[in-house]
Amino acid sequence: MSALPPYASTGQRIWHYTFRYGICGAIFFYLIMPILVIIPLSFNAQDFFTFTEKMLKLDPEGYSTKHYKDFFTNSDWQLALKNSFRIAPMATLLATAFGTLAAIGLSQPHVPFRRAIMAILISPMIVPLIISAAGMYFFYTRINLQGYWSIVLAHAVLGTPFVIITVTATLVGFDKSLTRAAASLGATPIRTFFKVQMPLIIPGVVSGALFAFITSFDEVVAVLFLGSAKTKTLPWQMFTGLREQISPTILAVATLMIAISIMLLTVLELLRRRSERLRGITPT
């Protein structure tokens, strides 16, 4: 499929182009179109969720930034934004610290009950959010833990599997002879860790942290159950907005969040390349 051979028959040619530009093109369109559509819609001068005639004629009057202004001046949205940035970094910190340590432990050659431990540690990613959130809601009410910290703990535990997976992935390619070399030159295990191992796994740790951050930043079910109007986050505000009175400000927020995703994606890609370069693999 990679390239059409010169001897291809007409039928093969037709199929080749239909597949590549017809079928795959349509699926790519399906994947990306919803995300692209809301970007221009967020600049709609009207409070509609569809393109107005003026927008289609590219008339500047059809466009405005009023939904963005609303986002930056509305106290509800500002509170949500502030809460999101208060909760996510704390959850990321906890998840990354615990997760990195555990990943290093798990990649040792002899770990008793490795499979069972791994299954438990990854389970927050697998168990449906509604069940995790319900369980936490029941349990945290029982032990009287509410508000900010209950959400931080919930988000931290939901983010740890991502940290473990990414850090373990960088450790898999880790050359053990490097630590042995360091040891043979007289470095203590701690010095070896900070001078040799740490610089090599740092890209994995950072991408794990990014995953944990986005998990918390995007999470809504746990916030819905554990939080209140005081601890509402951006997804909380979007969710209630979508469920009750849908306002076009949501599209402005969505566009901003797409920008954040693109930024994160770029950082991750750069990290991946750096990590591969450090480990002596040519970037692909």
Binding site: F28, V220, L251, M257, S261, L264
Partner: peptide
């Protein structure tokens, strides 16, 4: 094109479809 939707907030994608 595959990773961008993957990385985009779930609520963003849901609101896009709602629109």
């Amino acid at each position: 094109l595959v990773l961008l939707p993957f990385w985009t907030s779930l609520l963003v994608r849901t609101s896009a479809w709602k629109v």
